[in-house]
Design a protein around this nucleic acid. Structure first.
Lengths: 158, 158
DNA sequence: GGGATATAGTTAGCTATGCTAATTAATTCG
DNA sequence: CGAATTAATTAGCATAGCTAACTATATCCC
């Protein structure tokens, strides 16, 4: 029952504002349907969505260990282990072992990986652009702002 | 960058507003990360995300044929066929054959299915609530509005 | 030093969800 | 009535999520 620490001594039972309920449903539904559409575009790259997402982290945030990648992507280590193995098979990343800790390693996007990601992004943009173009400047700004609000919310989750 | 080479038609050069590019990336990323968080909560229901989403359509939009459900969920018929089979095994939906067309059938959420969905929704809300509570009324409204803009966009996709 | 403990990653095995191609069954059309 | 169409399923494959159990290395502490 949604207890939240408040400034007062006792935990308060927060009665969710009614709009919170419908907002959660609508955000959830929109996210699901958006990703299903995007998936159809990304299929053209021949690389699955989880691999693309992990690769994206590597390209934009630089090399990472498998564990750090798993944390960043909010999946468990074995899942990331397999994703990385697939990326490596496709030569989209390269692995370098940590000289100071033989258990550890750095995963780094290759030129091929970076190029593939940029092309995928390009393809996605090209497809999104036609649709986003039908939005007003204000609506687009609203979407972008909402995405940021969400990411901020997600960053401090839990 | 961001020309829209209309894959098929005349090479109309749409110069995307710069914010369109970053907006697409941010929306995409936010959607991926939101769903990974939500998935962890929904796992408690013991029913997969695709099943929950399909069930949600049935609960809120009423009975549907497998084909219509596949279209609504943007998946191919065999995929929906298996999702429906799983829902049926769990007694979350019931099937009635169309008396006028023996090939066709109606899928309808059972009381159990409706209850499970509401409970999952409740669980999601409880979890979201603490985080959404930190948003202002205006930010929340912005998120909900953005979700609607997205859904509208998606409805007329392609 | 050396055993106990902790940490990084992988392997094995299960489930769920996507797909395409081919199949079955029923309806509609010519 | 036979051919084409339509609705749904079956079969087979790949990706991606999980937990449990394993290997290898590092660190801690006596």
């Amino acid at each position: 029952m949604a207890k939240v620490k408040s400034g007062t001594a006792e935990p308060k039972t927060v009665v969710s504002r009614p709009e919170t309920v419908t907002a959660a449903d609508r955000i959830h539904s929109a996210a699901i349907h958006l990703l299903r559409r995007v998936r159809q575009q990304d299929a053209a790259s021949g690389v699955g969505p989880a691999q693309l997402s992990a690769l994206s982290v590597l390209v934009f945030a630089g090399p990472k260990t498998p564990g750090a990648l798993a944390t960043a992507e909010q999946v468990k280590p074995p899942t990331m282990s397999r994703i990385v193995a697939a990326l490596k098979r496709s030569r989209l990343v390269k692995i370098t072992r940590d000289p100071h800790d033989a258990r550890s390693m750095q995963i780094c996007a290759t030129v091929k990986g970076t190029r593939l990601l940029q092309q995928g992004r390009q393809r996605r943009i090209e497809h999104l652009a036609a649709h986003l173009a039908s939005l007003t400047r204000s609506e687009l700004a609203q979407l972008a702002a909402a995405a940021d609000i969400l990411e901020n919310l997600l960053r401090n989750w839990r």
